[in-house]
């Protein structure tokens, strides 16, 4: 191998990393112990945080990148990939996370946005990014900025899957509606969606977005996870749903198995037995607008 030919952080390498996560569960953790539990349960990656979204929600104030000490502690504890969150538009938090060696950065609406005009230019980084989206236009704008993975936003920290379902169905139906359009119609549609035309044309041809698409935001039970898989997700992020449940070890394993056997109701029934209480849930319609996280980013 000619060493000067080595190429790092290419689009293929970034999207390839995301692709290796397919069919997996990515779990939010706030300590080395929790990371170990997630790895033992079969998580494909962990998201290193100072607080899970449910606690960020109740703490209020400005939510920022986690303490690097905490992130390194979690990286040292497990052999699976470790992800961490940066604020929307906060490219210095992202630089810090990259220098720590995290495997993927989540530019996340769960933290308080640092820029209300621009997201991070993710093409400038070696490390891949995942970004949230509620609809096809938002997903393609993020991909155009360099995101290697999309997750539907849902409403984090609520234990209520309704918004994740809404966002997933929205993207699916927007993609289906592209069928049969010719290129000139797709270019017009791209303008309406405020999405780049080339990415929309690629999406129409492949009948899926050009990168891996996970679901997130409110997944709290094995059935919730399997629901998102049956709705066409490539995998799921589970935030507060595991470590805010009564028996995190059992819940973590059960959700991994439900994602593996997403179309086998009898297996989902079996793994759902005796898990104790799932995390307490919130009614989305009772949330005051300033506490809604999904509308952060655009």
């Amino acid at each position: 191998m000619i060493l000067e030919d080595l190429r790092f952080g290419t689009e293929l390498i970034k999207r390839g990393f995301a692709s290796m996560q397919k069919g997996g569960v990515i779990m939010d953790v706030v300590s080395a112990d929790q990371a170990g539990i997630a790895e033992d349960a079969g998580a494909v990656a962990v998201m290193a945080l100072e607080r899970v979204p449910a606690d960020i929600r109740s703490a209020g104030g400005v939510a920022r990148m986690a303490d690097p000490k905490k992130i390194v502690e979690i990286m040292d504890a497990v052999s699976i990939p470790v992800m961490a969150k940066a604020r929307i538009g906060h490219f210095v938090e992202a630089q810090v996370l990259e220098s720590l060696g995290v495997d993927m950065i989540d530019e996340s609406e769960v933290l308080t946005p640092a820029d209300e005009e621009y997201h991070i230019d993710k093409t400038k980084f070696t490390v891949p990014f995942v970004c949230g989206a509620r609809n096809l236009g938002e997903a393609l704008r993020r991909i155009n900025e360099g995101a290697a993975m999309i997750r539907t936003k849902g409403e984090a920290g609520t234990g209520n899957v309704v918004e994740a379902v809404r966002h997933n169905r929205t993207i699916l139906s927007e993609i289906r509606r592209l069928k049969g359009m010719d290129d000139i119609e797709l270019v017009k549609r791209a303008r309406e969606l405020e999405a780049p035309a080339d990415l929309l044309i690629e999406t129409a041809q492949r009948q899926r977005i050009p990168v891996v698409n996970f679901s997130a935001g409110g997944i709290a039970t094995p059935s919730d996870a399997a629901l998102m898989m049956q709705l066409g997700s490539d995998g799921v992020f589970v935030g507060s749903g595991i470590f805010k449940s009564e028996q995190p070890e059992l819940m973590a394993k059960a959700i991994v198995e439900a994602v593996n056997h997403w179309n086998e109701p009898s297996v989902i029934a079996e793994v759902s037995k005796g898990l104790g209480d799932a995390m307490p849930g919130l009614d989305i319609h009772a949330l005051p607008p300033e506490q809604v996280l999904q509308t952060r980013g655009w």
């Binding site: 191998m1 000619i2 293929l12 390839g16 052999s79 990939p81 060696g101 993927m104 070696t126």
Partner: peptide, 30 residues
Amino acid sequence: RNAFGRQRESFESDLAIEGMNPPFHAIFIR
């Protein structure tokens, strides 16, 4: 496992493989 380190060390490169010409463009991810 993970012999190269973390994701930022993942790379692509042309790889000489016994009897294979031209080399194979290989993608190494963690």
